[in-house]
Amino acid sequence: MSDARASILAGVRAALAVPTERGVHADVERLPPDARAALPPVPADPSEWPAIFTQRMEALRGRCYRVVDEEEAAGVIARMAHEEGWNAVYLQDEPTVAAVSADLRARRVSAGAPAREMADCDAGITTCRALVAQTGSILVTAADGGRAGTVLAPHHVVVARESQLVPDLPDAWQVASAGRPVPSFVSLVTGPSRTADIERTLVLGAHGPIRLTVLILP
């Protein structure tokens, strides 16, 4: 086993000792790459980010609500629970999540429950680390309800703060790596789960959530 390791590394080193032929990919510079000079533009003014985030996310068929306080958030959640007939809901163990779900009459499943119980939930409510205006993405880690909490239920509801909005992907990865060591699980979630594997027809809810809702608190 360690034989393979030594032999692969030796093979790679020997291969690299062969100089690249002149003129081959001469157009690739060695400068530190500047992603921002290439990626889709985002205005510098932070007051524009919520609207851009909302627009991008809704273009991907997610829903986004800006609410004034936890009470209004709880109201939005209660309405969705009623409309969709939630019987069971997965709740991340976190104060804001607890506050916005206090009045829910559905059965509560909490972190650490058996996966099958989580899989039977109609919705899951979690926090996030950041919202990315550039792509309408939500950055979650293991701290936001675990690896499965943000993907297992058919409706994923995210409670976020306006201060969590970042303009672009470079900033999102900076947020992810802010707390060293970087968590064991990090995911950028961009819209509800989707597939186009059958005749390129878009179908939502391939394996993950069919619905994705973000509630932005001040």
Binding site: G112, G146, R147, S187, G191, P192
Partner: peptide
């Protein structure tokens, strides 16, 4: 839709 990072098994505190 999902760009995920996985680094090692479940950590202490992960559900």
């Amino acid at each position: 839709c999902y760009n995920s990072l996985y680094g090692g098994p479940r950590e202490t505190g992960d559900p």
